[in-house]
Amino acid sequence: MSDETEFIAAKNASTDGEFVRDATYINDRVVKGLEPGSDPVGEKIGEMRWPVEAGRYRLMAARACPWASRSIIVRRLMGLEDAISMGLAGPTHDINSWVFDLDPDGRDPVTGLHRLQEAYFNRIPDYPRGITVPALVDLPTNAVVTNAYQKLNFDMLSEWTDFHRDGAPDLYPEAHRDEIDELDSWIYPTVNNGVYRCGFAAEQGAYEKAYDELWASLDRLEERLATRRYLVGETITAADIRLFTTLVRFDAVYHGHFKANRSKITEMPALWGYLRDLFQTPGFGDTCDFPQIKEHYYNVHRDVNPTGIVPKGPDLAGLLTPHHREELGGSPFGSGTAPGPIAEPSERVPAGHRAE
């Protein structure tokens, strides 16, 4: 959903001013074992199973959104570009929907959609909840299959294996799944969602509670990453992707816009080195568009920033400076390989939109 919609829902749902994220999604899955071209199996939306089928689905995303950025990174690291195409919405929108205003005539070139909302209505007329990215759209019907980002990402890792590139990494290794899930159990509410709980708090007490929990967790992560290159094991995992999309937005957006301002990530040595390490890894920094990220938060969140003025800073060139994290051991992809250059011109972040 748009963050404006989330904020309105939060004010209605909470009696103490705390931001409450609407986490109700269309939980359909795309799985192996079903005949390509077949209809989904199941009778209830949210519990249906769709067949893995190259070319059938389009990932609708927005570089501005951290949840969508996770899916963009997973798709690129696993080499699923030829199997699952991608449409990119622009960074600003109204309360109704993300809009494909980056494309000619304001329409996604594959689906012809102007608003992502149309794909939701094609599946559920007058869909009553927020219009979120990422969303997977069924091209034959132009209807949303799922917007449950965590399950969507898991399916790209575990169900689309026949279409993974040679050398694709194991981002959710069996030996570390419990540890990855345990980390997510506190990083998600206090860090990923914690910055939103700070920014959208409607009462001082709710803000201070979220702020304290955020910094307790960031201090905990700073200590953890002082002695290890990645969050879990010796290679990049899903845990790193989940944390990266928050950290890379922190100094540019969350520090000021969301009042998460005890410190900047550049002032925390381990987290700053870790962020630079990931940013310089193919699949991470090359998917980040900072003007879009800043325009989204500062322009769309008029409850937080009434003027809509987008700050010129900060200088993000430091993301490209040496990090020396390789001295801690490990390697980004283990026995796998890095993804190659982005082949599709429309998926490349424009020059001047990166940390240059």
Score class of each variant (00 low, 15 high):
2 S>M: 07
2 S>Q: 11
3 D>K: 02
13 A>C: 04
14 S>K: 07
15 T>D: 14
17 G>V: 09
18 E>Q: 11
19 F>G: 04
25 Y>I: 02
27 N>E: 15
31 V>K: 14
39 D>E: 15
40 P>H: 15
43 E>W: 00
44 K>D: 04
44 K>R: 12
44 K>V: 15
47 E>N: 10
50 W>H: 11
50 W>N: 07
51 P>A: 07
52 V>G: 13
58 R>C: 01
60 M>W: 01
60 M>Y: 01
60 M>F: 03
62 A>Q: 09
62 A>M: 13
64 A>L: 10
65 C>I: 05
65 C>P: 01
66 P>L: 09
69 S>W: 05
71 S>E: 08
72 I>A: 10
73 I>V: 14
74 V>A: 12
75 R>G: 04
78 M>D: 02
79 G>Q: 09
85 S>A: 14
86 M>H: 05
93 H>G: 06
104 P>N: 09
106 G>C: 05
108 D>S: 00
108 D>T: 02
113 L>P: 03
120 Y>D: 01
122 N>W: 00
123 R>N: 06
125 P>E: 06
127 Y>W: 14
131 I>K: 12
135 A>W: 00
135 A>C: 12
137 V>P: 11
139 L>A: 03
141 T>R: 13
143 A>K: 02
145 V>K: 07
146 T>A: 06
148 A>Q: 07
148 A>D: 15
157 L>H: 07
158 S>H: 14
163 F>N: 07
165 R>P: 01
166 D>Q: 13
166 D>N: 13
167 G>C: 01
168 A>W: 01
176 H>S: 14
177 R>S: 03
178 D>S: 11
179 E>I: 01
179 E>N: 07
180 I>P: 00
180 I>T: 02
186 W>Q: 04
194 G>Y: 05
202 A>D: 14
206 A>P: 01
210 A>Y: 13
215 W>P: 11
218 L>R: 06
221 L>R: 05
223 E>R: 12
223 E>K: 08
225 L>S: 10
227 T>G: 03
231 L>E: 11
233 G>V: 12
234 E>I: 00
235 T>E: 10
238 A>T: 11
240 D>H: 00
240 D>Q: 04
242 R>P: 03
246 T>W: 11
249 R>S: 04
255 H>S: 08
256 G>L: 04
261 N>E: 14
262 R>S: 07
265 I>S: 03
265 I>H: 05
265 I>F: 09
269 P>H: 01
271 L>P: 05
272 W>Q: 09
272 W>C: 13
276 R>F: 08
277 D>A: 12
285 G>H: 05
285 G>M: 06
288 C>I: 12
289 D>T: 03
298 Y>W: 15
302 R>L: 08
303 D>M: 13
305 N>P: 07
307 T>H: 05
316 L>P: 10
316 L>R: 10
319 L>E: 07
320 L>M: 14
324 H>Y: 13
329 G>K: 10
332 P>W: 12
335 S>I: 02
337 T>D: 08
339 P>F: 05
339 P>Y: 09
344 E>D: 13
345 P>N: 03
345 P>C: 06
348 R>P: 00
349 V>N: 07
351 A>F: 04
354 R>M: 03
